[in-house]
Structures are given as C-alpha cells and as structure tokens.
Design a protein around this nucleic acid. Sequence first.
RNA 1: GACCCUAUCGUCUAGCGGUUAGGACACCGCCCUUUCACGGCGGGUGCACGGGUUCGAGUCCCGUUAGGGUCGCCA
Length: 494
Amino acid sequence: MLKPAKMQCSAPRSSPFQHYKEHSEFFRVLFFLLPQARPRPNYSSIMHVRVRFAPSPTGFLHIGGARTALFNWLYARHTGGTFILRIEDTDAARNTESAVNIIIEGLRWLGLEWDEGPQTSNADGRSMGQAGPYFQSRRSAIYQARVEELKMKGLAYEHEGAVKFRMPREPITINDLVVGEVRRELTDRESKDPDFVIVRSDGQPVFHLVNVVDDLEMDITHVIRGEDHLSNTAKHIALFNAFGTPPPRYAHIPLILNTDGSKMSKRDQGASLISYMQEGFVPEAVANYLCLLGWSPKDNREILAQSEIISRFDLPQILRHNARFDFTKLRWLNWEYIRSMERDRYLKLAVSAMEQAGFDLSKVPPDYTAAALLTCKEKVQQLSELASLAGFYFRDDMTFEESVRAKEFNPESGACLLRLKSSLEALDLFSADHIQQVLKRLAAESYVKMSVFVHPLRVACTGSTTGPSLYHLVEILGKSRVIHRLDQALALCG
RNA sequence: GACCCUAUCGUCUAGCGGUUAGGACACCGCCCUUUCACGGCGGGUGCACGGGUUCGAGUCCCGUUAGGGUCGCCA
C-alpha cells in the first residue's frame, strides 16, 4: 500500500509538482525553465470549495460533531469557499424541530455561521442558498429520480421490497486528504453479499444513498467528516461512479476519545456541546480547544485568534490519530479567555451565569453587581464557578459549613473580630486602602501577623477561606453589610 | 470473523535521516503574598515492542502488540 506524503499541500493531486520538495534539485531547474509552473498552486483559485456539515437531528450535538462542523467551517473560510448546513432528517421517528434547533443553536453559539442552509429549525421555513431544500425529508423526489436512474442503468434492483445497489466486487481506492491512499477491500461478510440496500422496503432511502445524492446535487467539493466514515467511503465512491460523477475529495478527521481512550458516546461527560454552553464556557475557548485536537499551528502557541486559525488551517496537516479529550486543558484555555475578555462582555456573561444559578440580581444596584463580579474575573475557569465564588456578595445571611465553623470561630478569633468590628465601624472612608491600614494597625498593636486578622475577617464576610482579594471585597460589601456579618460571626465564636 | 486507520511525556502536540527529543495543560519544589490565585525561577516524566534499510532511525520498510473505526432495511 502506498502512503502519500503527509505534507502534501492543497494542490490538486494531478499536479506533477506536489512532491517537488523531495526532488528539489530537479524541480528547481524545472521551475527555472518553466516559469509558469508554481510550486504551490492556489487550490481555491482553481475551484470554488463547497463543504457541508450534515448532522442528523437526534436532539444532541456531539462535541466531535461540533469539531467536524468547525473543521468544515474553517476550511470554507480558509479557501473562501461555501459552508453548507444540511439536515439529515430521513429518520422521521426521532427528528423534531427542537432537535434541529439544538444543532442550529449549537453552531451559532460556536460562531459557525453557514452560507447555505436552513435559517430556522422548521423544515419548510426560510433558507439561504440555491441548492435547497436543505432538509433531506423534503428531497424525496430527488432521491426517487436518482434511484430510477440507477435502476435504468442496471445498477440497482428490487429485492424483497427494498432496492439494492450493485456494489463492485473489486477493491476501491480512496484518496483521502488526511489519511492518504486507502485501498478498501470487501470484508468477508460483504463478500457473501456485496450489494447493499439504498431504499428500505418502506420506501425510505437510506443514509449512503441520500448522503451521496445530496453531495452530488449540492456540488460538494470536499467531504470533511469523522474517520468513522472512512470504511463507508468505498460505498460512496461506488455510488458516485454509478451516477457518472467524479466523487468529491475526502478528508477523514480523527475522532475525539474520552480521557481513558474509550469512544466518547452520548452519555459520557462533556460529550454534548450543550453542556459547555450551560457550564460557563466561552465559545471562542471551546473552538480554540477543538482546533488543537488533531491540528496544530506548529509554533508552540495554544491561544490563537480565530482569524489566525482560518489563515493557517488546512486539510493535509490534520493529524491521523485520534485525540483524547482533556477537560483540564479546556478549562485552562477558558480561564485565559475569561481573564482577557473585554469588561462589559464578561459582566454580561457573569450576570447570566449567576442568574442561571438562581441568583436574582434584578434588584441589586448594577454598580454593586459589576464591582462584585469584577473581583472574580481572573479567578474562575468556568463562569459557572461564579455562583460559589461570588455568591456571598448577593446573600444576606451567611451560612457556614460545620468544618469551617469549628475551625475558624473560637474565642481567639472572636476577640479579633470584636476589635475588627470597632475599628471598621469607626472608619469614615470605607476603601480598600483604609481597610488594609486598619488590619495592619491591629496586627502591629498585637505583635501578630496580619493573617491573624485577615482570616477571620474573610470567613466572616464570605463564609469561605478562599475568594477574591479581601480588602476589595470588604470595600464592595460596604460597612453595614460587613458589620452585620461580623455580628453573625461573633455569635458563633462563643 | 473480515476489512480499514492509528501509535512521541499522564494528556494535547512540535519533529518530516544527524535534535542535549521542543512547547502547552497537569504535577512537584522554591520565591512573592492578606486567603485562593496570578506572576517569577527551577524540576521530573516520552519516541509501544521486534526485525530490517542506512555510516546514522522518533523519523523509511516489514511484523507483533495495543487502541480506534467499519462490515444494518441506523445516521
């Protein structure tokens, strides 16, 4: 089996110069003699790229599917081509409008706008593009005509009420842009009966048929999909051949596995894109992370602007092996995006995360909310962590876990809190600086470290031993709230 | 069972015959420090195994092993 060079560029395979690097001396001379020959012809200028994401609306958008969509989108943007969304809703039983909506909202959240496809989840609703309908459930006539065509050509036949396609018995060679040249032989089971069903006995066309017909009718030039379809591709190529149309270029991208290396299925943690939307992830961070699975900018950088990814992204450099999903690294990336996020956008996302966690901020002064949430901006990896980190700002009564209560509140800390209370009460200007001065002074007077006062104060104010910068949080809470909380804590000190 | 793909630190990756095998996340130590962090400095960990080819192999070839995928009247 011949494996083509991994670094083969986007140039059409027909180019005799694609391996010029391997014969540099020879071609250097050749290029000199033939100035019209370019080492890297620009693929996009030769052909207008049309790619599609074709999910089945199952009520779920798999993170791997999201990455497939992302890679298609990136390739379209990279080449100046067209990104198409097609809904493969041939299985009527489990397809609902809300299931389509999950796909649409997921893609929009990730920022993957499509150039052609539905604009709403309604199969008969508005759409963009001239190659519609973009719902397979509305393309029955097209499939029927194509099946008739195959029958006429003697390439399909009735069998027990279904229609079967005459699959070639010879091995089929797939020329994959990522995997390379793959010679696919029939399996032993297929050898017994190579022909496969393209229309079920109930009249419904099956995936292999509709997928190929749509790619053909929609002039899809590149099929970028998960590697789980690599073996099926032989069937698809055979179908294209049967229709007398050259197949598109294929690019099978590696799969995303669980951390333990097992296949990521629906039920696995983090398998659904919706979970990221709900758990405080920033779409750019998720997209950035997804890009790094199976693709690399090769310059030791992890955080990349979308525009940069678009200009660098290409199919031949995609890795061939599966990647395990590293939730910890995603969280780190998300933190990087949150901390460098523009203030107002952060506030918007932070407020909605708090509301999602059950906090009603509608009656809280906006300035207070903003100041409070801003103290946590660089401290959360997911926006959903805000509820526990900043919750104390928005609660009237502190609750203390038994362990915290036993450890932090005792006669000694009570004494500290009492002095803290009178000193803070006397403070005219309740600012972080002045509050810090008070702590410093008290510690100096008692010949103890600041932490002797810092710790009880933090626990009294926030209910926790960790949190935002103490002096700022005390300032933001304001004198009356702080005094009230000190009283509450004092009552627990015995 | 058959067919197909894959194999560099724990994870994501750089590497395209000659490297002290680089980076990131995670982890450990020290410094800074009002907590948790951030930041700074330093550290450990890797070419699955076995054969070839070659002066020289992480890199090319073959095999083994392991992982993943496919073989539906699912998509």
